[in-house]
């Protein structure tokens, strides 16, 4: 029987070296969110993470239940990690270039909630349309 057919996979140990301080910061932030309702944002640009470090980080954090895509000034990808309350927010421009990448420790990232100004604008548009159609 060839070796590949043996149903055992050897997992390499993940090296957390430079990521450890970040993981501790996340741990503290989640504790504050839970007990003091205090939200935190961590800008990943401020950590000297190599491409490899980032891959490991996202591997460790995994993907949770919610993934959202925002289309404004290019795409933005927002997803909850497998740790509820820990979100990854990535902003891209219209050429798919990453502009910023941050971790948000919050119930829901603020960029996902509809801003009152936009609600107002949308409401006015609906009213205008209803008036034009002589419904209102």
């Amino acid at each position: 029987m060839p070796l590949n057919n043996i149903p055992i996979q050897i997992k390499s140990k993940i090296s957390l070296g430079t990521l450890l301080p970040l993981l501790h910061e996340i741990r503290h932030a989640l504790t504050r969110l839970l007990h003091q309702k205090e939200e935190t944002a961590i800008d990943l640009r401020n950590f000297p993470l190599s491409q490899q470090d980032k891959q490991t980080l996202f591997q460790v954090l995994g993907k949770g239940e919610i993934q959202a895509e925002l289309t404004a000034l290019g795409r933005s990808l927002i997803w909850e990690t497998r740790l509820p309350g820990l979100w990854v927010v990535e902003h891209y421009n219209s050429d798919e270039i990453l502009l910023s990448q941050s971790l948000e420790i919050t119930g829901i990232p603020s960029i996902l909630t509809a801003p009152p100004e936009d609600i107002q604008q949308g409401l006015e548009q609906l009213q205008d349309w209803l008036k034009e159609e002589k419904i209102l």
Binding site: R45, A72, S110, P115
Partner: peptide
Amino acid sequence: ISRRHFIKFCTTIASL
């Protein structure tokens, strides 16, 4: 231009 659009710009600049 939506506010999310604008907030995204401001977020990027704050990060930089």
